[in-house]
Design a protein around this nucleic acid. Structure first.
Length: 455
DNA sequence: ATCGACTTAATAGCAACGCT
DNA sequence: AGCGTTGCTATTAAGTCGAT
């Protein structure tokens, strides 16, 4: 049926007559006679299947599947098997651009971050590079490239994670066989030097240099722990329940998680006055609390980089205060650090809109006040000024809810709802209407508003 | 009807050819 | 150098036919 012969150059060739009666040769290169013979047997089997229309045995199919493209191509050339689907060369640049474009499901900020990784990948590999040819070693080299950019370890880790995600997408599209980034990981080590506790005295000096709008923004960041600009700029007057001392904070960052598009946050004593003053100032029909900043942070209904940082740094310098790293984040972090001195971490984490685990690993700080209090034999709670009043506000906020429920005392209810990670304190989406509030009274009535969201 | 010798066509094996 | 094709020879399978 088929024969093996040796060529002058030492290579072997299997010859047979195909079903079209033409003599065909399959070159094997320099292989042992034993190997050549086993291939000859398989070629005979394939030829027989071709003629009789039978499906090759599983073992034979497996052998075929494992062949490299080159040799498989030779078998296909002589009509023994069908040609493999032609591999489309996919350049990395166009693929990544297309991938980003296709992901209409992610937010603007996510797209910005992904764009940075795409930029890095294009820089390192070149836009025309066939992504199927990138191996794990080169993915390792990309990691070192990122390290060389003087990025923090968390950034490197995160960007590698995104690179892995992009290549998984390519793999699923069958544009590459393996994901070269599967095992390329970097340990994210948080940099404690970027953790700063912004003292109340410090922020007071900064507030003195703020215009009213900025006063409110900074106050909401430092004393209610809102994310800026996403949450501060999303806050509406309709979200504020003056009587219940509670506001519903819209949270774009976590909106993609079930039930975490918004949360209830107490109107702490430290923010109430600022909020009320802003309410007085607000023009008739205002919807958003920080309308003017919002218009700068939004364009065509999408978030854009508001770059609050530049202006904030100017204000801080004007106040004669040294600029601290991660401006708004550290205000939020300082707020949470203070709050856990008064309330259990699971409650505070719920107000902050994250889990206790995130609070502990990224937010809670050790401050000089803790050392001072410990040395003086007091608990950290005692050392926080104004603790009593905030605790009262929280109690007053919780009481009506408990009354509505007519069930457990408020504390028990909180513990129940927030025992592990998140069940949301308030599944607040249901009463966030976005309807402009009538500005007639300073404490607008909000009928049907239940604090915990349990009507 | 069956067997074996002989003939012939098809196929196998080897090596060289010629192109890229 | 590597590849597919082709020429030539050897081998095998199939067909033919006469002797039994």
């Amino acid at each position: 049926m088929a024969s093996v012969s040796k060529q002058p150059n030492g290579g072997r060739v299997v010859q047979f007559v195909g079903s079209d009666r033409k003599r065909r040769s399959v070159r094997l290169g320099r292989v042992s006679s034993k190997m050549a013979d086993s291939i000859r047997t398989r070629i005979e089997l394939l030829d027989a299947c071709n003629r009789t229309g039978q499906v090759p045995a599983p073992e034979l199919l497996e052998w075929l599947a494992k062949l490299d493209d080159r040799f498989h191509g030779r078998l296909a050339a002589v009509g023994l098997v069908a040609h493999r689907a032609k591999k489309i060369k996919q350049a990395i640049g166009p693929f990544l651009d297309g991938y980003l474009k296709s992901r209409i499901d992610v937010g603007h900020a996510t797209m910005t971050v992904w764009g940075q990784v795409v930029r890095n990948l294009k820089q390192h590999f070149g836009t025309d590079r066939d992504l199927a040819t990138i191996n794990a070693g080169e993915a390792d080299a990309f990691r070192l490239f990122l390290v060389g950019q003087n990025l923090s370890s968390t950034t490197v880790a995160r960007r590698l994670q995104f690179a892995r995600q992009f290549f998984t997408a390519a793999q699923r599209a069958e544009l590459c066989r393996i994901n070269p980034f599967t095992d390329v990981r970097a340990k994210a080590i948080s940099d404690p030097s970027r953790q700063v506790f912004v003292e109340r005295e410090t922020i007071a000096r900064v507030l003195d240099c703020c215009d009213p709008t900025w006063r409110l923004l900074v106050t909401l960041s430092r004393y209610a722990g809102l994310r800026s600009p996403s949450e501060t700029c999303s806050l509406r007057w309709a979200d504020i329940n003056w009587q219940a001392n509670m506001m519903i904070v819209q949270s774009p960052k976590t909106a993609h998680h079930e039930g975490r598009g918004s949360r209830a946050v107490p109107i702490f004593s430290a923010i109430r006055e600022e909020l009320q003053a802003a309410f007085h100032r607000a023009p008739e029909g205002s919807v958003y609390v920080l309308e003017s900043l919002r218009s700068r942070a939004m364009a065509r209904g999408e978030w854009v980089n508001a770059n609050l940082r530049t202006q904030f740094e100017r204000i801080i310098r004007r106040a004669g205060v040294q600029v601290w790293p991660r401006l708004f984040h550290q205000l939020r972090s300082s707020c949470e650090t203070e709050l856990v001195r008064q309330f259990p971490v699971h409650i505070v984490a719920a107000w902050m809109g994250h889990t206790p685990r995130i609070a502990i690993s990224h937010y809670l700080q050790i401050t000089g006040a803790d050392f001072a209090a410990a040395a003086a034999g007091r608990s950290a709670v005692d050392s926080t000024s104004g603790a009593g009043s905030d605790a009262e506000i929280v109690q007053s906020a919780v009481r009506p809810a408990a009354a509505t429920l007519g069930q457990q005392p408020p504390r028990a209810r909180f513990a129940l709802e927030n025992s592990e990670d998140w069940p949301p304190l308030a599944s607040a989406g249901r009463y966030c209407t976005g309807v402009p509030v009538d500005r007639a009274g300073i404490e607008p009535a909000t009928p049907g508003f239940s604090v915990l969201g349990y009507a």
